[in-house]
């Protein structure tokens, strides 16, 4: 992908349930390759639904989605998902796999040889601040919530995907560790030049990590702005965030 390409494009995407409930409503957005878009919004505003739609886990009822330059309808969903790193809210680690097996999952699905997988897993565990010798053989049940989240991030990065979808990856961390990981995330992002859609509740995190910020409410994307311009509006929902930020 050259400059000016988009990693993700949504055009008037809607998701209506059988009972008439709208989970997504007229969402349009473009994520230029290499940029980080942070989605912020209240609980239930549709952030996770949007990520799942990009990953073809959900099929919107209207509108069009292009991912990595190709229409979603033209993707084999399984190939697509292996090229998109997905950090799942509440981590979604496999309880019966070791930490190593969890992190090495997608490379294994892609058929990498075992030596390369092992090296990659060690590299990633170190990257997210977990000692492979100490944690590699553990089960997710033997980790703290924050440690699990780091494993989730490492797993999403494992196959070096060009696009990352991160659903509250740092939600369960203490403020200190969280700040550390945010810092590492920024370095990582600048070094790896990934395209990232990052979901958070935390306006500080959004301002710190996003190139741009999208605000969601009731299934609609109210506004997308450069991170610095987020507060430059009369939008009442933004005003609410300004209040928490102050």
């Amino acid at each position: 992908m050259g400059k000016g390409d988009f990693a993700v494009e949504l055009e008037d995407v809607g998701f209506v349930l059988g009972n008439g409930k709208r989970l997504l409503d007229g969402v349009s957005l473009r994520l230029p390759a290499g940029e980080t878009l942070v989605l912020i919004g209240r609980s239930g505003s549709g952030k996770t639904t949007l990520l799942k739609s990009i990953n073809a886990l959900l099929r919107p009822t209207s509108g069009a989605i292009r991912v990595l330059g190709r229409d979603l309808a033209d993707w084999d969903p399984i190939r697509l998902r292996r090229q998109v790193g997905y950090v799942i809210q509440e981590t979604g680690l496999f309880p019966h796999f070791t930490v190593e097996a969890n992190v090495g999952l997608v490379p294994r699905l892609l058929g990498w040889d075992e030596g390369r997988i092992r090296a990659r897993v060690q590299e990633l565990l170190r990257l997210v601040g977990l000692d492979p010798d100490l944690f590699g053989a553990r089960r997710p049940g033997q980790l703290s919530g924050g440690q699990r989240q780091r494993v989730g991030v490492a797993r999403a990065l494992a196959a070096d995907p060009p696009l990352l979808l991160m659903d509250e990856p740092f939600g369960a961390l203490d403020p200190v560790t969280r700040a550390e990981l945010q810092e590492e995330f920024r370095l990582l992002r600048d070094r790896l030049r990934k395209s990232i859609v990052f979901v958070t509740h935390d306006i500080r995190e959004a301002l710190a990590l996003g190139d741009r910020i999208g605000l969601m409410s009731g299934g609609r994307l109210l506004r997308v702005s450069a991170a610095g311009d987020f507060f430059q509006t009369d939008e009442p929902e933004v005003a609410a965030y300004r209040k928490v930020f102050a």
Partner: peptide
């Protein structure tokens, strides 16, 4: 279901989901 969805989200085929997630669990 969240674990199964994670499997699908990681790009498992139905067979892989069956043999690596469903049956072991």
């Amino acid at each position: 279901p969240a674990i199964r969805e994670a499997g699908v989200g990681m790009g498992m085929t139905d067979w892989q989901l069956l043999t690596r997630v469903d049956l072991p669990l």
